[in-house]
Design a protein around this nucleic acid. Structure first.
Length: 730
DNA sequence: AAAAGCGGTACG
DNA sequence: GTACCGCTTTTC
């Protein structure tokens, strides 16, 4: 009798390709896209229904019943499921794990779901007695708040009001007491923005907006605009267009670019329900936003990489800001690229998508050149300010003090004396990148990685930047016993120290992951920069994006050379992007800026190209080089990665994997080779690079690999994964 | 990935 | 006998 029960197909979060069939109670509502709690083997798991009324090929007595259906309405709609099926196929990742990756963490677990009341809001009472308002004459704070709430037109989140009006709690309570406003429960996780007036556009901006408006259906556009050219305003104009038609907008930004300023701008511009998804939000809040977006309650969703998988039934526009940013590519598990998934999503939904950057990825420029994307360019800053001049300081045979050369110090001084701000960029945190024995050449290694330990806190601590292990710094060389240990090279801490001794009267602030560990620290430091209290800024990548520093007139970049001679073919592209982005921080208002790059390779052709032709000139040369070497975007790559505790296992597995490939003229296989850092966190890593001249050749091989590799005996000894379109070969 | 099954063996 | 390993098999 049990075989008469309906059978559903479930995607289970395990590293297995394929789905599993289960029996379900005929009386229960169990639609495609709903989660189910099941027993898989002996353990309980949460899976997602991907098909119903299935004719199972599995013996009826092996089918288990679903323990519980967790959602009576689908959590994944048809469009999102289709996108995720595509994603699983494209990245050759198991469907169940793909769906689990898309889901907010709170929904991956079993949980009796209680609708959240985390988000409370206030709205104006329409028929409030006139005398109540008249009584506000001696309460300016209350007047101000009431006006703000009325201007919004609908409910405003409590948190939003507190952020805009510090200490608003009491006046809000007073207004409620007078019956002028009332508390309402907002859809969980969402906040409500207030309508703002758009600023006048420059004619360049207006041209782009006008051209964007002529597009219909799937319309990918690249907006290549120099820093300060006002790309955000263009996004906002298009968002307004789309929101006015009653559709939803999905806005993606890298974690580092998703600043409070950007979110505030959004809030004070659109009288819309906004869902914010970023790493600082709790699991519960993320789940709330996800559900609200899926129910069509959110008008705008703004978030980082994983936000691309938010269900949005009325989606009308996708924006990918800083589209070149490496954080759009996930580095483990489902190794997806959110920009590429976004393009697929826009295509499926037949809607426009805007990719914006001052330094577009070479892949994106190539697509624009090939006519796949409409290419819009903004070469002038919206303020009319000049772009800074970028110049080199040759540091060959020059002594460095804390990473700084004398000429750079001398360039900085006048800017500080004039009361302006200076930023020093170094892509290395900590005090120094190695602790080195002056007598025998030994340097303190990480015991779990093939990498030196980084010195932190003025020679006191050693930290491995690859596995996170830390130890006390030794006082004598472990190899020869010498006491002449020196910290070699410079990181942010050392640079900050050197600057303090050169400019003792100037306040120096350090911006890196270590100094930002405490919550709110970044905001506090940025406030000091905005007020002019901080004059010297030292930092990593973190300083490169999303911040406006009105008084910044000089930028120094200490180590561009690392980007010129890396094993990674994308290193020069990253170097050019970072240099251009940090340079864009300088001279934003009416003050002209200057940028100095320290280098030992002033004749390097890519550096010369970047200085002479700016990022577009560099990109042209870089694309020519990629074409000559058949590297992306002119060739297509997939990386088979393997790691294990013993060195030989990854190699054996990859060698066996390489055997299974039918190598032809247009398909090449490189390796197996040890990864550039062969041992990391105690595991030995190696990989096999697959190169195809056409993408269509690559995917059939990967399709077969997906099943074949799992059956290789050697596969059981390693952890392996397929990385399609790898971003870094490390 | 995780848990269970299998076969070998050291133990006192 | 049984407690404990390393290795293989299975997961609807």
């Amino acid at each position: 009798m049990e075989q008469d029960y309906p059978v559903i197909r479930v995607a289970v979060p395990v590293p297995l390709y394929g789905t599993f069939d289960y029996l379900v109670d005929p009386a229960a509502s169990a639609p495609v896209g709903a989660r189910v709690q099941i027993r898989f083997g002996r353990r309980p798991l949460v899976g997602v229904i991907v098909a119903t009324d299935v004719e199972s090929q599995v013996a009826p007595d092996k089918l288990k019943p679903v323990l519980r259906v967790l959602d009576d309405t689908p959590l994944f709609d048809e469009a999102l499921l289709k996108l995720l099926r595509w994603t699983a196929r494209y990245y050759h990742h198991p469907l169940g794990d793909t769906l689990a990756t898309a889901l907010p963490a709170a929904l991956r677990r079993t949980r009796t779901d209680t609708e959240s009341t985390r988000n409370r809001g206030w709205q104006a009472v329409a028929d409030a007695p006139a005398e109540a308002e008249a009584a506000l004459t001696r309460a300016p704070r209350q007047q101000e708040l009431l006006a703000a709430i009325r201007a919004a037109g609908n409910a405003v989140a409590h948190g939003t009001l507190l952020a805009r009006f510090p200490g608003a709690q009491r006046p809000l309570n007073a207004l409620a007491e007078r019956g002028l406003i009332e508390a309402v429960a907002l859809p969980g996780g969402l906040e409500t923005g207030t309508a703002g007036t758009p600023p006048a556009l420059t004619s360049d901006q207006q041209d782009v907006v006008d051209r964007l408006r002529t597009a219909s259906g799937f319309a990918p556009a690249l907006i290549e605009g120099v820093t300060g050219s006002g790309k955000t305003e263009i996004y906002f104009q298009r968002m307004a267009d789309i929101l006015a038609t009653g559709r939803q907008v999905l806005f993606l930004a890298p974690e580092i670019g998703l600043t409070p300023q950007l979110i505030d701008r959004l809030r004070s511009r659109f009288a819309a329900a906004i869902g914010v998804l970023h790493s600082q939000r709790s699991d519960g809040e993320r789940a709330d936003v996800w559900k609200a977006a899926g129910a069509g309650e959110a008008d705008i969703v703004i978030g980082t990489r994983s936000a691309i998988f938010t269900p949005m039934p009325r989606l009308g526009l996708i924006i990918v800001d800083e589209e070149h940013d490496g954080s759009y590519k996930q580095g483990d598990g489902l190794r997806y690229h959110a920009r590429d998934v976004a393009l697929k999503r826009a295509q499926d939904a037949a809607i426009p998508i805007l990719l914006g950057s001052a330094t577009p990825a070479l892949e994106t420029l190539h697509n624009a050149r090939a006519g796949r994307f409409v290419h819009h360019k903004l070469v002038r800053r919206a303020t009319g300010a000049a772009l800074p001049a970028i110049r080199l300081i040759d540091i060959r045979s020059r002594p460095l003090d804390g990473g700084l050369s004398d000429p750079l110090i001398n360039r900085i001084r006048p800017h500080l004396e004039a009361g302006n701000q200076v930023m020093i960029f170094i892509n290395r945190r900590g005090f120094a990148p190695a602790l080195f024995c002056h007598d025998c050449g030994w340097s303190a290694p990480c015991h779990r990685c093939d990498a030196p330990m980084t010195v932190h806190g003025a020679m006191s601590r050693l930290v491995c930047h690859h596995c996170g292990s830390t130890e006390k710094a030794p006082t004598v060389c472990a190899s020869c016993g010498s006491e002449s240990l020196i910290a070699l090279g410079a990181g942010t801490q050392r640079v900050a120290g050197a600057l303090r001794s050169h400019f003792p009267d100037v306040a120096v602030a350090r911006f890196d992951r270590d100094s930002m560990a405490r919550k709110g620290r970044l905001e506090a430091q940025l406030a000091d920069v905005a007020s002019g209290k901080t004059q010297l800024l030292v930092g990593t990548q973190m300083l490169a994006k999303g911040h406006d520093f009105a008084r910044l007139t000089c930028v120094g970049v200490l180590d561009v050379d690392g980007g010129l001679f890396s094993a990674d073919f994308r290193a020069t592209e990253h170097m050019a992007q970072v240099v251009t982005q940090v340079a864009g921080r300088a001279g934003r208002a009416d003050r002209p800026g200057e940028v100095w790059l320290q280098t030992r390779n002033p004749e390097h052709p890519m550096l010369v190209r970047l200085l002479g032709g700016g990022y577009p000139g560099f990109a042209e040369a870089a694309l020519a080089e990629r074409e000559a070497t058949a590297l992306p975007p002119y060739g297509h790559l997939a990386l088979l990665r393997a790691e294990a505790h013993e060195q030989r296992y990854p190699h054996d597995f990859l060698a066996a994997a390489a055997e299974t490939i039918p190598l032809g003229g247009e398909l090449a296989c490189w390796g197996p080779v040890p990864a550039p850092m062969a041992r990391r966190a105690g595991r030995y890593r190696a990989h096999l690079l697959l190169h195809a001249s056409r993408r269509a050749l690559l995917h059939p091989v990967l399709d077969r690999w997906q099943t074949q590799l799992a059956e290789l005996p050697a596969a059981r000894r390693v952890r392996w994964s397929i990385d399609v379109d790898p971003q870094d070969l490390l």
